[in-house]
Amino acid sequence: KHCVKCNKAITSGGITYQDQPWHADCFVCVTCSKKLAGQRFTAVEDQYYCVDCYKN
């Protein structure tokens, strides 16, 4: 599998969101770069925000 963000191979520790593979380090808030894996977040038009950034 290849990460949908960076297009590099996922060798271990990847996550899946909406049936797409991601590196955990690539699945981050677009505003603050906080890792979103296992966290609550909001998706708006294929942009992902942590709860704090989305509220602001």
Results as ranks from 00 to 15, higher is better:
1 K>S: 03
1 K>I: 02
2 H>A: 08
3 C>L: 00
3 C>T: 01
3 C>H: 01
3 C>N: 02
4 V>C: 08
4 V>T: 03
4 V>Y: 05
4 V>E: 01
4 V>H: 06
5 K>L: 14
5 K>R: 15
5 K>A: 07
5 K>T: 12
5 K>N: 11
5 K>P: 02
6 C>Y: 03
6 C>R: 02
6 C>G: 04
6 C>N: 04
6 C>E: 07
6 C>D: 11
7 N>S: 14
7 N>F: 08
7 N>Y: 08
7 N>C: 14
7 N>L: 14
7 N>K: 07
7 N>Q: 14
7 N>M: 15
8 K>Q: 14
8 K>T: 06
8 K>H: 14
8 K>Y: 14
8 K>N: 13
8 K>D: 14
9 A>C: 15
9 A>K: 12
9 A>R: 12
9 A>M: 13
9 A>N: 15
10 I>Y: 05
10 I>R: 02
10 I>N: 02
10 I>T: 06
10 I>K: 02
10 I>H: 00
11 T>Q: 07
11 T>A: 08
11 T>I: 13
11 T>E: 10
11 T>W: 05
11 T>C: 05
11 T>L: 09
11 T>N: 02
11 T>R: 08
11 T>F: 03
12 S>V: 11
12 S>A: 15
12 S>L: 07
12 S>E: 06
12 S>C: 03
12 S>N: 04
12 S>I: 14
12 S>G: 10
13 G>L: 05
13 G>S: 09
13 G>M: 09
13 G>W: 03
13 G>P: 04
14 G>W: 05
14 G>N: 15
14 G>K: 12
14 G>S: 10
14 G>F: 02
14 G>C: 12
14 G>E: 15
15 I>H: 15
15 I>Q: 10
15 I>W: 07
15 I>F: 07
15 I>D: 08
15 I>K: 05
15 I>L: 13
15 I>R: 07
15 I>M: 14
15 I>P: 06
16 T>L: 10
16 T>R: 13
16 T>H: 02
16 T>V: 15
16 T>C: 15
17 Y>P: 14
17 Y>Q: 14
17 Y>K: 11
17 Y>F: 10
17 Y>D: 07
17 Y>W: 06
17 Y>M: 11
18 Q>L: 08
18 Q>V: 09
18 Q>M: 06
18 Q>Y: 08
19 D>Q: 11
19 D>C: 13
19 D>A: 05
19 D>E: 04
19 D>W: 03
19 D>V: 03
20 Q>T: 12
20 Q>M: 14
20 Q>P: 03
20 Q>E: 10
20 Q>R: 08
20 Q>A: 12
20 Q>D: 04
21 P>D: 08
21 P>E: 07
21 P>A: 11
21 P>S: 09
21 P>F: 09
21 P>L: 05
21 P>T: 07
21 P>I: 03
22 W>A: 05
22 W>C: 08
22 W>M: 06
22 W>Q: 03
22 W>P: 04
22 W>F: 12
22 W>K: 04
23 H>C: 11
23 H>A: 01
23 H>N: 00
23 H>V: 01
23 H>F: 00
23 H>I: 00
23 H>D: 00
23 H>Q: 01
23 H>T: 00
24 A>C: 11
24 A>H: 11
24 A>E: 01
24 A>S: 15
24 A>F: 08
24 A>W: 05
24 A>L: 04
24 A>N: 12
24 A>G: 10
25 D>W: 06
25 D>G: 09
25 D>S: 11
25 D>K: 05
25 D>F: 04
25 D>L: 08
25 D>A: 08
25 D>V: 05
26 C>H: 02
26 C>V: 00
26 C>D: 00
26 C>I: 00
27 F>V: 04
27 F>I: 03
27 F>A: 08
27 F>M: 10
27 F>E: 02
27 F>Q: 03
27 F>K: 02
28 V>L: 06
28 V>M: 11
28 V>T: 06
28 V>G: 07
28 V>F: 15
28 V>W: 04
28 V>R: 13
29 C>T: 01
29 C>W: 00
29 C>Q: 01
29 C>R: 00
29 C>M: 00
29 C>V: 00
29 C>Y: 00
29 C>S: 00
30 V>K: 09
30 V>R: 06
30 V>Q: 04
30 V>F: 11
30 V>C: 02
30 V>H: 09
30 V>T: 03
31 T>E: 04
31 T>A: 06
31 T>I: 09
31 T>F: 13
31 T>D: 09
31 T>M: 09
32 C>R: 00
32 C>P: 00
32 C>M: 01
32 C>Y: 01
32 C>L: 00
32 C>E: 00
32 C>I: 00
32 C>N: 00
32 C>H: 02
32 C>W: 00
32 C>K: 00
33 S>H: 03
33 S>C: 07
33 S>L: 09
33 S>Q: 15
33 S>Y: 12
33 S>D: 14
34 K>L: 09
34 K>Q: 05
35 K>C: 05
35 K>G: 12
35 K>E: 11
35 K>A: 13
35 K>I: 09
35 K>P: 05
35 K>T: 07
35 K>N: 07
35 K>L: 13
35 K>R: 14
35 K>V: 06
36 L>D: 01
36 L>S: 03
36 L>H: 04
36 L>M: 14
36 L>A: 06
36 L>N: 06
37 A>T: 11
37 A>D: 15
37 A>W: 13
37 A>C: 07
37 A>N: 13
37 A>E: 10
37 A>R: 07
38 G>Q: 09
38 G>H: 06
38 G>D: 10
38 G>V: 09
39 Q>E: 12
39 Q>S: 11
39 Q>T: 10
39 Q>F: 06
39 Q>W: 09
40 R>F: 05
40 R>Y: 03
40 R>H: 13
40 R>L: 06
40 R>W: 04
40 R>C: 13
40 R>G: 11
41 F>N: 15
41 F>G: 09
41 F>C: 10
41 F>S: 13
41 F>P: 14
42 T>E: 12
42 T>V: 07
43 A>M: 11
43 A>Q: 15
43 A>S: 12
43 A>F: 14
44 V>T: 07
44 V>F: 15
44 V>S: 11
44 V>W: 05
44 V>N: 03
44 V>C: 09
44 V>L: 11
44 V>A: 12
44 V>I: 08
45 E>K: 10
45 E>M: 13
45 E>F: 05
45 E>V: 03
45 E>G: 10
45 E>C: 10
45 E>W: 05
45 E>S: 13
45 E>P: 04
46 D>C: 07
46 D>K: 14
46 D>H: 05
46 D>F: 08
46 D>T: 04
46 D>P: 02
46 D>I: 06
47 Q>M: 14
47 Q>H: 15
47 Q>G: 12
47 Q>C: 12
47 Q>A: 10
47 Q>N: 15
47 Q>E: 10
48 Y>C: 02
48 Y>G: 09
49 Y>A: 07
49 Y>I: 11
50 C>G: 01
50 C>Q: 01
50 C>S: 01
50 C>I: 02
50 C>M: 00
50 C>V: 00
51 V>P: 10
51 V>F: 10
51 V>Y: 02
51 V>C: 15
51 V>I: 11
51 V>N: 14
51 V>S: 08
51 V>L: 10
51 V>W: 10
52 D>K: 13
52 D>E: 10
52 D>W: 06
52 D>N: 11
52 D>Y: 08
52 D>L: 05
53 C>M: 00
53 C>S: 02
53 C>G: 00
53 C>L: 00
53 C>E: 02
54 Y>H: 09
54 Y>D: 10
54 Y>E: 12
54 Y>P: 02
54 Y>R: 09
55 K>P: 15
55 K>R: 14
55 K>C: 04
56 N>T: 04
56 N>D: 06
56 N>R: 15
56 N>C: 14
56 N>Y: 03
56 N>S: 05
56 N>F: 11
